[in-house]
């Protein structure tokens, strides 16, 4: 057999035989579902934490909530996401039969929230104090100033960093296999162990991640250009 025949053979046994390609498509579906809902959890929780933290920094209020938020950030950012995933699955939900996708969404969402929180907080703190004062001088209280004046500007400033965090999150979900969830990475690995052929399935997995990241990055830079344009320098 020449090289090309050999290669075609491997392609066949890796992807076609036994419909093995469905491991990749099903895995991809799981990866996308987990990422999508984890982003939602991360954004909502992250914004909440950021508002608590920056309100405390600006006004000195919410001392207890700020303390809890700080503990949360320290723990989440100070431990690996895989360990957090394992603890949530094998410790917190040890005694209940629970959907693994739900566990993964929770773990990655809680993890991402810590990073989103710090991004959003930096966005809020980057807004000139004069904007807060202008709001206050017009009789707008702190929540109103935050909602109508600060957040829209902060959101614009942090959009690229936020989008970047989602790209990181997409790749981080590749450790979902630790709780035996068949995501894209695990799907490729299953093919590898079935065919004893590592190169093709793993390269295929890597390529799929790469393409998704490139598409997302492209969207982000498009967005950035749009924002720069509407900045009316």
């Amino acid at each position: 057999m020449n090289f090309f025949e050999q290669f075609a053979d491997k392609l066949y046994s890796t992807f076609i035989e036994g419909a093995r390609w469905t491991y990749l498509t099903d895995g991809l579906k799981t990866t996308l579902i987990v990422t999508f809902f984890a982003v939602i959890v991360g954004v909502i929780l992250g914004f909440l934490i950021a508002v608590i933290r920056s309100t405390h920094d600006k006004t000195g209020k919410l001392k207890i909530l700020n303390f809890l938020a700080k503990v949360y950030l320290t723990v989440i950012r100070g431990t690996p996401v895989v360990v957090q995933l394992l603890i949530i699955y094998f410790v917190i939900f040890a005694s209940v039969n629970i959907d693994k996708i739900f566990v993964a969404v929770l773990a990655f969402g809680l993890n991402s929230a810590a990073y989103v929180a710090e991004i959003v907080r930096s966005g809020i703190m980057s807004i000139d104090n004069g904007q807060f004062e202008a709001g206050a001088s017009l009789g707008l209280n702190y929540p109103r100033t935050m909602i109508y004046i600060i957040m829209p500007q902060a959101f614009r400033n942090i959009l690229p960093a936020l989008a970047n965090e989602f790209i990181v999150l997409l790749k981080e979900t590749s450790v979902a296999g630790y709780i035996a969830l068949t995501d894209l990475t695990k799907g490729g690995d299953i093919i590898r162990s079935a065919t004893y052929e590592a190169f093709l399935p793993l390269i295929a997995v890597a390529l799929i991640y790469l393409i998704m990241v490139m598409i997302l990055s492209g969207l982000v830079s498009k967005l950035e250009r749009r924002l720069a344009k509407s900045d009316r320098g």
């Binding site: 000139d128 004069g130 904007q131 004062e133 202008a134 206050a136 001088s137 017009l138 009789g139 707008l140 209280n141 004046i149 829209p152 500007q153 614009r156």
Partner: peptide, 20 residues
């Protein structure tokens, strides 16, 4: 206090218009 501020206008050195 916020109700009082509604009745007191303020103009700043650096304008502080809302850029968005």
């Amino acid at each position: 206090l916020y109700a009082v501020r509604e009745r007191m206008g303020m103009v700043f050195q650096h304008f502080h218009l809302f850029p968005h």
